[in-house]
Measured scan of single mutants.
Amino acid sequence: TFTSYQLEELEKVFQKTHYPDVYAREQLAMRTDLTEARVQVWFQNRRA
């Protein structure tokens, strides 16, 4: 599960791009204290 802060950050990036590159995902992962893999999976699920 994600915190409301994490979801907010993820959604913010999703609004800009549905396909963030690895750099964007790593920045987001650091900001949200998630792994890059978790961020990647979240985007895959969000796009589905």
Rank of each mutant, 00 (worst) to 15 (best):
residue 1 T to S: 12
residue 1 T to C: 07
residue 1 T to Y: 13
residue 2 F to M: 10
residue 2 F to W: 08
residue 2 F to K: 02
residue 2 F to N: 02
residue 2 F to Y: 12
residue 3 T to W: 06
residue 3 T to C: 06
residue 3 T to L: 07
residue 3 T to K: 06
residue 3 T to Q: 06
residue 3 T to S: 11
residue 4 S to G: 08
residue 4 S to D: 14
residue 4 S to T: 13
residue 5 Y to Q: 09
residue 5 Y to P: 04
residue 5 Y to E: 09
residue 5 Y to T: 07
residue 5 Y to R: 09
residue 6 Q to T: 02
residue 6 Q to C: 03
residue 6 Q to V: 05
residue 6 Q to L: 02
residue 6 Q to R: 01
residue 7 L to I: 12
residue 7 L to C: 05
residue 7 L to M: 10
residue 7 L to A: 08
residue 7 L to P: 02
residue 7 L to N: 09
residue 8 E to S: 11
residue 8 E to Q: 12
residue 8 E to Y: 11
residue 8 E to C: 15
residue 8 E to D: 14
residue 8 E to F: 09
residue 8 E to L: 11
residue 9 E to A: 06
residue 9 E to K: 02
residue 10 L to M: 10
residue 10 L to A: 01
residue 10 L to D: 00
residue 10 L to K: 14
residue 10 L to Q: 01
residue 11 E to H: 03
residue 11 E to D: 04
residue 11 E to P: 01
residue 11 E to N: 06
residue 11 E to R: 02
residue 11 E to C: 02
residue 12 K to W: 07
residue 12 K to T: 06
residue 12 K to L: 09
residue 12 K to E: 08
residue 13 V to F: 10
residue 13 V to I: 10
residue 13 V to M: 14
residue 14 F to Y: 14
residue 14 F to W: 15
residue 15 Q to D: 09
residue 15 Q to L: 12
residue 15 Q to G: 07
residue 15 Q to I: 09
residue 16 K to R: 10
residue 16 K to M: 13
residue 16 K to T: 13
residue 17 T to P: 00
residue 17 T to G: 07
residue 17 T to E: 07
residue 18 H to G: 03
residue 18 H to S: 10
residue 18 H to W: 14
residue 18 H to R: 15
residue 18 H to E: 08
residue 18 H to F: 10
residue 19 Y to I: 04
residue 19 Y to K: 03
residue 20 P to E: 02
residue 20 P to S: 01
residue 20 P to V: 03
residue 20 P to F: 04
residue 20 P to H: 03
residue 21 D to Q: 04
residue 21 D to M: 02
residue 21 D to L: 03
residue 21 D to W: 02
residue 22 V to I: 14
residue 23 Y to S: 10
residue 23 Y to P: 03
residue 23 Y to F: 10
residue 23 Y to Q: 10
residue 24 A to L: 14
residue 24 A to D: 12
residue 24 A to V: 15
residue 24 A to G: 05
residue 25 R to A: 06
residue 26 E to M: 13
residue 26 E to W: 12
residue 26 E to D: 07
residue 26 E to A: 11
residue 26 E to F: 13
residue 27 Q to N: 05
residue 27 Q to C: 07
residue 27 Q to L: 11
residue 28 L to P: 00
residue 28 L to S: 01
residue 28 L to D: 02
residue 29 A to L: 05
residue 29 A to G: 07
residue 29 A to W: 05
residue 29 A to T: 06
residue 30 M to F: 10
residue 30 M to C: 07
residue 30 M to R: 09
residue 31 R to V: 11
residue 31 R to Q: 10
residue 31 R to F: 06
residue 31 R to T: 10
residue 31 R to N: 07
residue 32 T to C: 09
residue 32 T to G: 02
residue 32 T to M: 09
residue 32 T to W: 15
residue 32 T to R: 00
residue 32 T to H: 03
residue 33 D to R: 11
residue 34 L to Y: 01
residue 34 L to M: 09
residue 34 L to D: 01
residue 34 L to H: 01
residue 34 L to P: 12
residue 34 L to Q: 03
residue 35 T to S: 12
residue 35 T to Q: 05
residue 35 T to W: 03
residue 35 T to E: 07
residue 35 T to A: 04
residue 35 T to H: 05
residue 36 E to H: 08
residue 36 E to Y: 07
residue 36 E to P: 11
residue 37 A to Q: 14
residue 37 A to P: 08
residue 38 R to N: 12
residue 38 R to A: 15
residue 39 V to G: 00
residue 39 V to C: 01
residue 39 V to M: 06
residue 40 Q to G: 05
residue 40 Q to Y: 12
residue 40 Q to V: 10
residue 40 Q to C: 10
residue 40 Q to F: 13
residue 41 V to M: 15
residue 41 V to R: 09
residue 41 V to S: 10
residue 42 W to Q: 01
residue 42 W to D: 00
residue 42 W to N: 01
residue 42 W to G: 00
residue 42 W to Y: 03
residue 43 F to T: 00
residue 43 F to D: 00
residue 43 F to E: 02
residue 43 F to P: 01
residue 44 Q to Y: 10
residue 44 Q to K: 12
residue 44 Q to H: 12
residue 44 Q to W: 08
residue 44 Q to A: 13
residue 45 N to A: 14
residue 45 N to D: 12
residue 46 R to Y: 02
residue 47 R to C: 05
residue 47 R to L: 09
residue 47 R to S: 04
residue 47 R to F: 03
residue 48 A to Q: 10
